[in-house]
């Protein structure tokens, strides 16, 4: 069974992102970029499926600028077999990315597509669901457990208030939540080996996908600041303030 994993190049999760002074966009010059943490969990899950003998090949695909090759190499170092970059510039929206991924799915015919539940830049939480719709396939978002049984996938999802388990007919789309697994660290030999793994580059136009944005980002601004309050000396004062000043308990 072939598994396709989508990876996205995003600002590293340790970077504190700020709006540019003119409010046109966020400041992304000279900031560290990394693989989106939820995508890393998706790669790990795909590699584990291969190690269990369930998956035969793991293909890492990214849609984005040329530099996204770095994140594909990261996925290859974690154990993916080969990579595909769909080159596209500008502000890429989830719908455009889902269409590019659909074109790759048509070519590669994977039985399972794994994605992160959301990217930590746009926080959209859309691409997997949209890809599933375009494929006419079943979807399981926010996965915390994934078991492949023959031609179906049993997926436990983290939903508000608990867990839900679905059975999906393959091919299917699964998006990962935090607790699905703990991604490994790439070893140095694996990082070296990853440099020699195949990485094909195509682009959105070649795939016949229109990636023109449907929305405009008019401005960005810092969130409203919440003023710091006071420090209280002890538990007694804290209780007193909550009861008599804030009147919330």
């Amino acid at each position: 069974m072939k598994v396709l994993v989508a990876v996205k190049r995003v600002v590293d999760y340790n970077v504190k992102v700020r709006a540019k002074a003119d409010g046109s966009d966020v400041e992304l010059n000279n900031v560290k970029m990394s693989i989106n943490p939820f995508c890393e969990i998706a790669v790990e899950e795909a590699v584990r499926l291969k190690e269990k003998g369930v998956a035969t090949e793991v293909i890492a695909v990214s849609v984005g600028a040329t530099q996204s090759q770095e994140q594909i190499r990261t996925a290859l170092a974690l154990g993916a077999d080969r990579g595909i970059l769909v080159e596209a510039d500008g502000r890429l929206e989830p719908l455009a990315i889902a269409k590019c991924l659909k074109a790759i799915v048509d070519k590669e015919q994977p039985q399972l597509v794994l994605l992160g539940k959301q990217a930590i830049d746009g926080d959209n939480n859309q691409t997997g669901q949209m890809l599933a719709a375009l494929m006419g396939a079943g979807q399981a978002t926010f996965a915390s457990e994934l078991v492949i049984e023959g031609d179906s996938a049993k997926v436990t999802r983290e939903v508000d208030g608990g867990l839900q388990t679905l059975a999906l007919t393959l091919p299917a789309v699964v998006t990962t939540d935090l607790r699905l697994n703990e991604p490994r660290y790439a070893s140095l030999p694996n990082i070296m080996k990853a440099k020699k793994k195949p990485l094909d580059v195509t682009n959105a136009a070649e795939l016949g996908v229109d990636v023109a944005p449907r929305t405009e980002q008019l401005s960005v601004e810092p969130p409203a600041e919440r003023a710091a309050g006071i420090k209280v000396a002890d538990v007694g004062e804290l209780l007193d303030k909550l009861k008599n000043e804030a009147k919330v308990i």
Partner: peptide
């Protein structure tokens, strides 16, 4: 259609605010 997730304010019928980058930034999107 490209959906807009998690809107936190309505500016007009096509324009909305939403938090991005883990809430570090609020974007206005049309």
């Amino acid at each position: 259609v490209q959906p807009i997730s998690d809107i936190s304010a309505v500016i007009d019928a096509s324009t909305f605010k939403r938090p991005v980058y883990a809430g570090n930034v609020i974007a206005t999107v049309k």
